[in-house]
């Protein structure tokens, strides 16, 4: 019974956050900072506060919102539809997309492990961070295979996704005259599913490129991280 209240409040808080953000978007003065009020970020912070203030254990929350989490996997499958719709355009550029994602995936891995390596963090932390840019289940698999802590990886992956979804469009706006395809690929490669959800909010084509970026990055990262690991780059 109690757990259902947690599900209801999650959906309601999210809906309110979404309405709030679109209201902000209409105010010209606040438009510049409205990206900070992304519904996922707002909902996560508000619900965390709610749980802490009401002394609700996270386990009850996870149980109550199981239904929402359950819908993640079929939603990823559903990305096959925009992928198919944009396939003509995607396949014509497939060579460039493959090179882009290979490079992006390598940049993603190296930029994750260098700060922790230089800081002198334990190697299990380094291995946990290496697959940071891919979707949670893939990242946890890789971390498990290379001596990382899968649950630490899950935490880092989710933070990366939320940060990328919130800051991605702003960071990418630095580059002038950015193409739909470039935007979508960068969002998918840097911040996986949450970034793809953000790209879909902007447009279906952005979403399709992001989905392809997410998918190919998952493949390349699962190859590259174990290879880098074997050549003892981070151990």
């Amino acid at each position: 019974m109690d757990n259902l209240i947690l599900l209801a409040s999650t959906i309601l808080v999210y809906a309110l956050a979404q309405t709030g953000q679109s209201k902000l978007n209409r105010k010209t003065r606040l438009k510049k900072i409205s990206f900070l009020f992304h519904p996922v970020l707002v909902s996560v912070v508000v619900i965390m506060l709610m749980l802490v203030l009401t002394h609700t254990p996270y386990e009850s929350y996870a149980e109550g919102t199981e239904g929402l989490t359950f819908l993640l996997a079929p939603s990823v499958v559903a990305l096959g539809v925009p992928l198919y719709k944009e396939w003509k355009k995607l396949s014509a550029e497939l060579g460039k997309i493959l090179v882009t994602v290979t490079f992006g995936s390598l940049v993603g891995i190296l930029s994750s492990i260098l700060p922790v390596l230089l800081w002198g963090s334990p190697l299990e932390v380094v291995a946990s961070l290496a697959p940071r840019s891919v979707t949670t289940p893939i990242a946890m698999n890789i971390a498990h295979a290379t001596g990382g802590v899968p649950s630490l990886t899950a935490a880092v992956v989710v933070t990366t996704g939320i940060f990328g979804a919130v800051a991605g469009p702003v960071v990418l706006s630095i580059l002038d005259k950015i193409e739909t395809s470039t935007f979508g690929l960068a969002m998918g490669v840097a911040s996986h599913g949450i970034g793809t959800a953000r790209a879909l909010e902007i447009g279906e084509r952005e979403g399709a490129y992001s989905a392809l970026g997410l998918c190919l990055n998952g493949v390349f990262t699962s190859i590259l991280v174990p290879v880098l690991y074997r050549f003892s780059i981070f151990h």
Binding site: G108, S111, P115, W119, V125, R132, V156, A167, G168, L185
Partner: peptide, 23 residues
Amino acid sequence: IPITLAILLGTIITLLGTAGIHL
């Protein structure tokens, strides 16, 4: 501290690196 740095810097570098090479 290093984990936050890796996430923030890493994500920005990955976004710009991917977009940059594609451009």
